[in-house]
């Protein structure tokens, strides 16, 4: 059992949760993740570590309530517990002084990109961040992102805040303005990551994405998270989760992520029903 030290909503359905886990807090590096099991009957879900406080012995995750497990997690408050947390897992982000580095976050992917943006800045890069959301209310970590950025851009699909359009349009604009870009990190929904890869490919800009396949153990044992990179099978949990965006087979990833769609719906509906019943009582 691990205590939740704090839990606050950053936007509708997106919660920042700080969990007591001293070993993980001490060891984690940018780009790594934890596996969490909310309850005794729970599934093991991978969540990227958004930050940590080694002195307090806590790690922070930022969770969007999507299916049953993430919704259940998002209902937790400070003082509650989660059953299991293990990590830090995965290979840390490869950080060096590239020159100008662009960190792109889509939706809750912003939270995953944040620690790597921090590490890029600390390594002496000129950091540009582009963070996209559907609408103004869903923009997260704006203040934090601005603090680590030499230039920070927000994009919204509906134009309610910042640049009106997609993150890829903003990126294209930067490229078109003749700026030299040495490195791009893109984390968000699969279509967004794929689109970013297509924007940078013609220019040969080194582009890295963080993949989110279905996982079971997260330690290399099951092979469920296998992805196709450069026509080879790689395990996201031990070889990744970050890979060269220009070599990733995104279609295979999005196909494989549909494997349990039916079961996920069934679980989520049953959970919503239970929540509604609980509310009535």
């Amino acid at each position: 059992m691990h205590n939740i030290v704090s839990a606050i909503f950053l936007a509708e359905n997106i919660k920042k949760i700080e969990i007591q886990a001293p070993r993980i807090a001490k060891k984690r590096k940018a780009g790594q993740f934890v596996m969490i099991r909310v309850s005794e009957q729970g599934e093991r879900i991978p969540l990227t570590i958004a930050g940590s406080d080694p002195e307090k012995g806590t790690v922070t995750i930022i969770v969007q309530g999507m299916g049953k497990s993430t919704r259940e997690l998002n209902m937790k408050e400070a003082g509650d517990t989660i059953h299991d947390i293990v990590g830090p897992l995965g290979t840390p982000s490869h950080i060096e002084k590239f020159g100008t580095a662009v960190s792109i976050g889509g939706g809750v992917g912003t939270a995953i990109a944040y620690p790597t943006a921090v590490a890029l800045k600390e390594a002496g890069n000129y950091v540009i961040t582009i963070n996209g959301a559907r609408t103004k209310d869903l923009v997260i970590l704006e203040k934090e992102m601005r603090a680590v950025s030499d230039e920070a851009f927000i994009t919204t699909d509906d134009g309610s805040y910042g640049f009106h359009g997609f993150v890829t349009q903003k990126l294209q604009e930067l490229i078109d303005s003749g700026r030299t870009i040495d490195y791009v990190l893109a984390i968000g929904p699969i279509p967004m990551m794929k689109a970013v890869a297509e924007v940078t490919r013609p220019y040969g800009i080194h582009t890295v994405v963080s993949l989110n396949p279905v996982m079971v153990d997260g330690t290399g044992m099951c092979g469920g998270c296998r992805v196709t990179v450069d026509n080879e099978i790689r395990f996201a949990c031990v070889d990744g989760p970050e890979f060269d965006a220009h070599k990733v087979d995104f279609k295979n990833l999005s196909d494989r992520n549909r494997m349990y769609l039916g079961e996920e719906q069934q679980s989520t509906e049953a959970f919503s029903h239970k929540c509604r019943l609980g509310h009535q009582q």
Partner: peptide, 26 residues
């Protein structure tokens, strides 16, 4: 979709007890 390693298939069923789904989440 539908191709497993033995480790994954057995881990889902044995460790995560997915034969009881949706009672267990996996």
């Amino acid at each position: 979709l539908g191709v497993y390693s033995a480790n994954e298939f057995l881990t889902r069923v044995n460790l995560m007890q997915s034969y009881t789904f949706p009672e267990n989440d996996t």
